[in-house]
Amino acid sequence: MDIVTRGFVGRRSGGDPRIPPGQYLERDFPVLSAGPTPVVRREDWTLRVEGVDGSSGILSWADLHRLPVEDVRTDIHCVTKWSKLDTSWRGVDVEAVLAAAGVGTQGATHVLVHAHGGYTTNLPLADLRGGRAWIATEYEGASLAPEHGGPARLLVPHLYFWKSAKWVSGLQLLAQDRPGFWEQLGYHEYGDPWREQRYVGD
């Protein structure tokens, strides 16, 4: 559109190529959530994996910590426009979690991720595999704070951050895509920050 906003110059934070279109660099770590922060104790935390055929496996906090842990250094992008560069996390590769739960992925194309508090988000199964997604339990060298999703959140940094469900409690494998919480409320079903897929239809 041929619009010029009189008197607006802008800050132009140097055009770092790691910042996707429409995003700005943030040094703080803002919080986004639909409701109050749930109190989830480690002893009570579980992750339920459910297969397309209804089979399921449950991992406890101790089960999760028996799996190999990885250090992840990554940029993150929130749909509310901020991006944060070089954040560091520790977590377990989702691939390893799926294997440990003993649930087959045959017939599954998508996953509905569940969280304590009732939040859900959907994404293709392929995006959780191949070393691109983790169940994260530490952020910047410390246990993950409750407001950032502690004790454990999903980390899928190549998609907008609402896909990285906080207080993750389940991975439900699906034979067919199904929209999650924000996705039913007008947010994009995939959420690629590099294609600015913020809202439905983007």
Partner: peptide, 12 residues
């Protein structure tokens, strides 16, 4: 908790 809806502005 299901009756409480939140929105957050600005930094933490």
């Amino acid at each position: 908790s299901g009756a409480i809806r939140t929105e957050r502005f600005g930094p933490s």
